[in-house]
Design a protein around this nucleic acid. Structure first.
Lengths: 96, 96
DNA sequence: ATATTAGTTCGATAATTATCGAACTAATTG
DNA sequence: CAATTAGTTCGATAATTATCGAACTAATAT
């Protein structure tokens, strides 16, 4: 295994770690199906978790580069980071 | 989110949990690049881990349906479970 | 200026996990 | 049969993780 491949696999492993929680997959699907930015609150509403827990998951998604965050006043808008999905998880949202 | 999608996402989450360890991704790549069945020992040799640890990872991969196992005498032959990859991880091995 | 709202951070906790060496089973070889 | 080999299982351990409620910050509304 060459060194670049190892770097990719480490990146993949961190992405997969983030995806290893069903709640986080749900968040991504909610975002994807919605088709445009959503506030943290809107997404979190559907998950039935403490808001601190939701915040924890959001941070994990953002840190792994799976979502974009944009602050608008008091709220934060979340969206899918298409670039990361295209590069590392092509066809992720096609699986059904 | 409908109930079938939830079932798929739970399955995906368990697959991703297995893939969240760099060693297990390595195992899969070794198998894929080799192109045909390998013994546990052959794969494990390249990982520099205790054989009990390797066995632990193999079991996780098998349990998630990512590999096939075939016992031949004293040894076990591992191979990629193409069906699972086609269904849940299309283009996984193309990422580079 | 006070109260509300959106989200983050903190401390605690229970559960899961990756790893090892040792002991084991089953198959093969001498 | 005895020794070796391939792989599994077990017990222990250290590290990570998902979750909560409480306290916090920053922005908005009354």
């Amino acid at each position: 295994m060459n060194i670049e491949q190892q770097a990719i696999d480490d990146k993949l492993a961190t992405i997969f770690k983030v995806l290893s929680d069903p709640h986080r997959i749900s968040i991504l699907r909610i975002l994807h199906e919605n088709g445009h930015e959503m506030t943290c609150g809107e997404v979190g509403e559907q998950l039935n978790l403490a808001k601190s827990t939701v915040s924890y998951h959001f941070k994990a998604l953002r840190k792994a580069g799976l979502t974009n965050t944009r602050k608008v006043g008091q709220t934060k808008m979340l969206s899918i980071n298409e670039t990361t999905f295209e590069q590392y998880l092509p066809h992720f949202f096609d699986v059904s």
